[in-house]
Structure formats: C-alpha cells, structure tokens
Design a protein around this nucleic acid. Structure first.
Lengths: 352, 352
DNA sequence: TTGTATGCGTTATCAT
DNA sequence: ATGATAACGCATACAA
C-alpha cells in the first residue's frame, strides 16, 4: 500500500504530516508529556499506528545523552565463571529495559583500548567491568568523562567495587583439607593473564598460606603449580603432581575447571577420587555440581545482579558529581561434595 | 590542569578552537579525507592529542546512518550450544571492528517485540538471529525497514539462512545405533519452546523415523519422550525410560545436555554405560568431549563465523536492494566416543 | 493547546 | 586548502 518499499523508516515529520500537526506535538505524544488535547493525541496515535512508527533511538540519544545501553567488559566470557556472572547481568539489564553491549577481552591491549575509548565514545551509559583491575589512568579517564563504572570481582579505590573474599574462600578450603587429615596438599593455581590485570590468582595463594601457617604446616613450593585456566591446564598440572614419588593426598585447585582436569588426570592414572585423592575446586560453576565436585562457591548470580543495580543507580543519579564509590564485600562458601574424604590417621611424624 | 573536571567530553568545536581551524577541517582530519595541508593537519592532530578527543559515535551515527553495532538475537544464550555459537560470533564481530549487542530471548513475546522494534530503532546495523524462525510478518518488517538479517540454524525464504541438516544428523545417529544391534531405542526429544519458533526438535524426530523406517523397525511411541533442554529434563525422561520392564538398550538424545542427564539417571540406577546402555547425544558441545559422550557434532564455530560474515557483507553492500537471500546447508557429523557399544547378537525375533 | 526554532556532534555540500 | 552552513531525527524552551 505504501509508495516506498525499500529502507524508508518514518520519522516524526511523517507522523506530523499525516496527523496534520507539528513535530513538536508528535514528540509530546511520544513522550506523553502533559498538555496535549485528547483529540489531537488520538490523531497522532493513529498516524503513528498507520506508519508503524518507532522513534529513532540514535537521534533520541543525541539530545537525551542517554543511549539505554550498558557496556559489559568481561575477559574470556565463555569460561564458566564469567558465563554465570554474565547470565545474571543479562537478566538484570533486560529487566531494567536496557541493552547489553558485550566487550569480550582477551588481552591487555584490547582491554586498555576499551578503557580508553569507550568513556568518550558515548555508545553506552555505563560500564560494568568484570574481574579486571583498571589502573589509575583508566579510573581517572572514567571520572573525567563522567562515565559511570562498577567493578565486579575487582577493585579500585575510585570506583564502586564488588569484591569476593577469595582469601577467606581459599583459606576455608585448605583448612578443611587439613582438618580431614591431609598434610601433603597440592595447589594448582591459575596463571596471571595479561600482566596483573585479570587477577584471580593471588588471593587463593594467600589463603592457602594462611591455612598452612595456622596449622604450622610446611609450605612446599614444589607442590604449587601454575596452569592455564582450563581443564587441560589442570590436567597437565595434576599429572605432574600425581606422578611424584611423594604425591599429595589432596589437591586444591584455583578453579573448578582446573579441578575437572585433575579428575581426568586421576582417572588416567588410576587414582580413585576421593579414596586416594581429595579434591576441592573453586567457583562453584554448574559443572561442579554435575561432577559432584567439592568447591568454594562464589555468589556469581548475586554479583551480577548487584553489580548492574549499582551501575544503574549510578547512571540515573549521575546528575550531580555522583555518590562516592562503594566497596562491597561478598563471602564465598565451602561446598562439601563427593571429592573429599578423611584421610585415615597415619603416623604424622613423616612430615618432619 | 584542565579547567573542567566533570563529565565534559571535548567535541570537534573544541578541537577546532584549539587548532584554530574550522570544524570542517577537523572532520576532514579525523576521517583522513584528502585535501588538508600537512601543516594544518599536524595542528589539528596536536589539538586532538591535547584534548584527548574521540569522536562521539552517537553523533556520527546520526549522519552516517551506521552504528557499527550488530544485534545478536539468541534464545537462552547460556546453554552450551548457543554459547558455543555465540563465542564464534563474538570473535568474528570483534575482528571486524564492530560491537555486539546481545538480545537474549526466553519467550515468544520478547522475541516478537525485538523483531518488531529493532529494525526501526536503528541501534544496530544488522541482526543475526540464532535458532529462531521469524514469521512472515517479521521477515517483511526487516525487508521494509531495510534491516540486514541473517538466520543461523533457522530458515525463512526471504532471508539469508544458514541451516544444519539435523534430519540427516539424527538419521545417522539412530542408524548407527541400529547397526550396533540395538532394536529398542529410546528417544528423548527437547520440548518445543515458545510455540513453533525456537524449533530445534522436529528434525531429530524425522531423522529417527527415517532410520527406523529404513531398518523396518517398529516405531514405539512409548519410547519417545519430551523433556526440557537441560540435564534435569534428560535425567527425568531417562529415569522413566530406564525403569520400564522392557527398557531400551540404547537412547538417542536431542541434545548433549539431555544425554548428560541420561548418564546421571543410568548411574543412579546402576546401569552401566555403555555396557548396559548405549547413548548418543546431539550438538557436540565441549562437555560431550569431557564426558566422552558419543554425539552428533554440529559445526557451531563455523555457523557463527559464516553467519556474521554473511551479515557484514549484506550490511556493507546494502546500498542497492541487496543481493537475494542465500540458503546455505551445513552437515553435522557423527562422533563415536565411549558411550556406545555393539549389542551381543540375541534372538531378534522378539520384536515381531 | 500547539507551532517554531534551536541545539545535540557529526558529516557533507557548498562557497571562498 | 579551508570555512561556513545545512542536514540527520529528536527534544525542548519559547512564542503564539
């Protein structure tokens, strides 16, 4: 029925013409501002309906300086931990009627580039940064551009940060292993990727040290390995650990994916879990439940939800200088499942 | 050093003022158009550097009518199959220097709403639709708005579609089961979510029928169950199937997640896989490899890559009416792993 | 109650 | 080679 058939999207002008009003009135109807006579409102509505008109959001962003989009910067988004955070993030953003722009980062450069450019490009109203520690320059850039930012599983003094006490989580895990009678405990840590920025590794090591210290256990550096954050990494490290003459009776892994790798290695070496080897993972991803893996559960869903909520609050209240940055601490919790057993009491003098 | 400290992002005007040129010249430098004297170019560049200026992309979109963003509409994006397609999609979009706007859909209404509004809102240059069959109205809407669209794992005659031959995949799987001597074969299909739109279920059933027919096997409706697309669904259905007096000796599952659930059910019933039960899943997600699950491998990575490439080609060539829609067929491949064995030859007369 | 005019930050088309 | 100026589609302050 329409005369034009290709790529012509109607604008306020078209609506105005059809409804025989001015564009100002059309705009008022769209945003249901007060002071439009019901009759003309109806005419405009009819015209909108006839043309199947929707406002051009880009143009609207021009004047409103709001895009309705939230940028999510996340490293390796397909990894289970990030995935599960991201799921909660998506739900919360959609519920808020906003859109999610995904910035997946795999390298430091990529990350820096996003940190530097996104605040000024204005394609998003705010940035949710997951598991990445921005440096001072980046934080200053956000502030200077007035770009709202919330850090999830990361920290910077100038930015609202939502952190999980992973020192405590690792401490609890290792302590539990010790309480189950283990003395030779292997630790498979994740590598620190991209210099110091995607830092999920250090805290685990510190927690382990604390538990060791408290139990007056000797820390043996040979039992601490570093591996890629995936099951291949975990498997390789476990192979190395488990083929030692004095192999550990328990392994603590920095992530559940590492722990899955440990499981694979143990199977290939005919080492029964938990009979001959106890194992605790980290994160509490869904797969850990399928595999009945004991683990340290992070509140991933809550992190995602709360992070988005804080960010939206910041966006909507950003008329003034904004409220001061918050630091929110979350606690992980130890999930005891199938992969851990008490070691029969053997003569503990061996260790000295 | 700067006088303003809060939320003031410089514009072309600021750059022009500092460099003592007109905004036109600044624009020319930014887009390195020809016809700018090297000296003034340097001055402008210096000013840009001094102000740390980046063009406002929203404003740029205003005139260029290009946003640089690609919208990806995907149902239940956290499910492994979609996740693995999405991973490839993300990589390809980022490589192309574009941005990924994620539209996760869980209901038909949500989906319709996106189909209806996104083309006119102009926040994205194109739409990649994964595993959803748009109806004629939606397809017409895309065409009318001139919005480039590519369908991945879905089909519509008016739109470039990238389909996997899942009938063939299911056929191969079931045929293989039959060749291994199985006669009583259970089938756990996925439910059809949101009416007929997220349709990943029918083709599997058709393929099964074909294999059954070819082998002159009697199709027993009681052995065909429908379950949610997750492991709980698979587990429940398997429990039902495996507690029958005449339980099947093999199960074909519509997705790997279903198959994982079957594995769980079998474990809980002390039914050994593959000794007492053969199993083939579908999709070929990473987890299938971990679990050593036999499965029908879909080319997820390739689907994601190719879909984005076709979409970008369409976006960049959309000056004219655009090229006619393509229909691209991809083949899945049977992956034989641990969960299938040959049944010892028993008297086959039982079945008649 | 409604229309007109201006601005948002760019790009592009004119002049100069 | 460069500057002024008109769009782009919308919101809004102001005028009528």
């Amino acid at each position: 029925m329409n005369d034009q058939r290709q790529g012509k999207v109607p604008s306020v002008h078209d609506v105005a013409r059809i409804a025989d009003v001015s564009i100002g009135t059309v705009s008022r109807v769209i945003n249901d501002s007060p002071g439009v006579k019901p009759a003309t409102r109806q005419r405009v509505l009819a015209a909108i309906d006839e043309l199947d008109y929707s406002p051009n959001l880009i143009a609207r962003s021009m004047t409103s300086k709001r895009t309705g989009s939230i940028g999510v910067i996340v490293p390796f988004f397909t990894r289970p931990f990030f995935m599960e955070v991201l799921r909660a993030v998506e739900v919360t953003i959609t519920q808020a009627g906003r859109e999610l722009v995904l910035y997946n980062v795999q390298t430091n450069d990529q990350c820096d580039s996003y940190f530097r450019k996104l605040p000024k490009q204005r394609k998003v109203d705010g940035l949710l940064v997951i598991s990445i520690f921005p440096d001072d320059a980046a934080a200053a850039g956000f502030k200077h551009a007035g770009m709202p930012v919330v850090l999830v599983d990361a920290y910077h003094p100038l930015l609202t940060s939502l952190v999980v006490d992973n020192i405590e989580g690792a401490y609890q895990a290792v302590k539990s292993l010790i309480e189950h009678g283990h003395r030779r405990i292997g630790f498979i840590n994740g590598i620190i990727e991209g210099d110091f920025r995607f830092n999920r590794a250090n805290d685990r090591l510190i927690g382990l040290h604390r538990a060791f210290g408290e139990a007056a256990l000797l820390f043996e550096p040979e039992l601490v390995l570093t591996a890629e954050w995936d099951r291949q990494g975990g498997r390789r490290a476990a192979l190395q650990l488990l083929t030692r003459a004095d192999r550990p009776t328990a392994i603590f892994a920095a992530s559940d994916m590492h722990a899955i790798g440990v499981l694979e290695a143990a199977r290939s070496l005919n080492i029964a879990v938990p009979t001959d080897l106890s194992l605790i993972g980290y994160d509490g991803i869904e797969l850990s439940e399928i595999m009945e893996l004991s683990t340290v559960q992070q509140p991933m869903k809550y992190m995602g939800e709360l992070g988005v909520q804080k960010l939206i609050a910041q966006i909507e209240g950003s008329a003034d200088g904004g409220s001061p940055p918050e630091l929110i601490r979350l606690q992980p919790s130890l999930m005891m499942r199938r992969t851990i057993t008490t070691l029969p009491p053997l003569n503990e003098a061996t260790n000295t």
